[in-house]
Design a protein around this nucleic acid. Structure first.
Length: 430
RNA sequence: GGAGAGGUGGCAGAGUGGUCGAAUGCGCCUGACUUGAAAUCAGGUGACUCGCAAGGGUCCGUGGGUUCGAAUCCCACCCUCUCCGCCA
């Protein structure tokens, strides 16, 4: 959530920065804010008087005045008058506040000055590339879903029977490899200082609002009809809310978490895209990285987080590139974002496998996550960062293609072998 | 699902209609003592918000209500804990 004070004090600058992201207009917010503040001044004055009257009555009675006498009755009458006026003002002001809040909560984060200005993904900037020499130089590589079905690892038809299209059932070594990837990634992240979390996967509306999925993107999540609970679209949501409404000590920061969860997305509006395979499913597994940091540390923490995600691809020896997203392509809550894209031979291109965002204090404001510096007065909002480390299904797709052997078997990346019973090659499961 | 207890400041925990934004303890800050630290002693220390300031306002789970005045009384809801039932 943007700071209303910032909007009020620098409307032109905020407007300009928002405009690099899309079509946003502050004029209504500014007008309502002015009205609200005028009402607030009036209301405050009345409340002051009301408090004075209340105290005066107490003092009179304590001083021996007749509680039912004339003196007290006059004060009571004034109290009633003030109350009537307040009863008129208060709902007006509350309504205005709600309107302003509803508008502001719908505004995305301001892009970082370093985020390149652009409209679409075509304006993203490639930052670096790794593993060019590892790109397989063959043209007989089957798409991951074909080889996966041949091996008996992936079954889309039966998954559709169980659920719907855009679901997959993993079987045999496919299931084992998925599990191995989860363990491998978590183990690596834990080793460099991330503390593992296994959060609830059903999450309430307040949690989705804090991280920025609500109110704008309600369409994108699955909702449990009878409860105020949703299926988590990413572990970012429950992990952000781990510390919602808390005041942390500065000595506790930074807090680093990694979390494996399944993720659920409705993929509304992506009908024609990636209809086959593991790239775009309603349910997929992901290991997420998350940091809660002091503002002055967030840029360095962001760079380090991207590196931590990259280290997984490097350990798996999967070729990838790093993009810096432009203002038109960064997520709602992000002010700066890097995507990692892994090489998919069958598509002859890089595909997103991780998205690493610095959200600044945007989510901390929405979730009211603050910290206190020992000995200093007051509190401040911390910064939150998140990134995939990595999306498991897409990693599986990358392995099925990049590690595909001419004979149709799949070589096991060296670092995964100990998670796969020390096998070096995997074949048909059924 | 049934019965009971409870939700108060960074934490713990008093407070049942008036000067209570709230005792006390812990934590934290400053000072004294000390070569230094610990211990001890003295003082200070809630959040949010409006205001240049002086100062004002709001906040005791949430939302209503009673009252001149509510942390305190009434109603509804949410959550937590304990016991019972059911169950992986």
């Amino acid at each position: 959530m943007l700071d209303i004070k910032q909007i009020r004090n620098n409307p032109t600058e905020v407007q300009e920065r928002l405009s690099t992201r899309g079509d946003y207009d502050l004029t209504e917010i500014l007008a309502l804010d002015q009205q609200q503040r005028e009402l607030e001044t009036k209301r405050t004055e009345l409340q002051t008087r009301s408090n004075e009257v209340g105290k005066a009555v107490g003092q009179k009675i304590k001083g021996g005045a007749d509680p039912k006498g004339e003196e007290v009755a006059a004060l009571r009458e004034e109290g009633n008058q003030v109350k009537k006026q307040l009863a008129d003002l208060e709902p007006q002001e509350r309504e205005l506040k709600e309107k302003i809040h509803d508008l502001v909560i719908g505004l995305p984060n301001l892009p970082d000055p370093e985020t390149p200005v652009g409209k679409t993904e075509d304006d993203n900037v490639e930052v670096r590339r790794w593993g060019d020499e590892l790109i397989p130089q063959r043209n007989d590589i089957l798409p991951h879903y074909e080889i996966g079905e041949k091996l008996g690892w992936l079954n889309f038809e039966r998954a559709a029977r169980i659920a719907q299209s855009r679901f997959v059932a993993l079987l045999g070594d496919g299931a084992a490899l998925e599990r191995a990837l989860i363990s491998f990634m978590l183990d690596r992240h834990i080793k460099v200082g991330y503390a593992e979390v296994l959060p609830p996967i059903l999450i309430n509306s307040a949690s989705l609002t804090a991280s920025g999925q609500l109110p704008k993107f309600a369409e994108e999540s699955f909702k449990c009809d009878r409860d105020d609970l949703w299926l988590t679209p990413t572990a970012e949501v429950p992990v952000t809310s781990l510390y919602r409404d808390e005041v942390l000590q500065d000595s506790e920061l930074p807090i680093l978490h990694c979390a494996y969860t399944p993720c659920f997305r409705r993929e509304a509006g992506s009908y024609g895209r990636d209809t086959r395979g593991l790239i775009r499913l309603h349910q997929f597994n992901k290991v997420e990285l998350f940091k809660f940091v002091k503002p002055e540390e967030s840029e360095a923490a962001h760079q380090a987080l991207v590196k931590d995600a990259e280290s997984i691809l490097e350990a798996l020896k999967l070729p990838y590139r790093v993009l810096q997203l432009c203002t038109g392509d960064i997520g709602f809550s992000a002010r700066k974002c890097y995507d990692l894209e892994v090489w998919l031979p069958s598509q002859n291109k890089y595909r997103e496998i991780s998205s690493c965002s610095n959200c600044g204090d945007f989510q901390a404001r929405r979730g009211n996550i603050r910290y206190k510096v020992a000995g200093k007065k007051g509190t401040q909002f911390l910064h939150t960062l998140n990134g995939s480390g990595l999306a498991i299904g897409r990693t599986m797709a990358a392995i099925l293609e990049n590690y595909q052997q001419p004979d149709g078997t799949i070589a096991v990346p060296e670092v995964l072998q100990r998670y796969m019973g020390d096998r070096t090659v995997l074949g048909k499961s059924f």
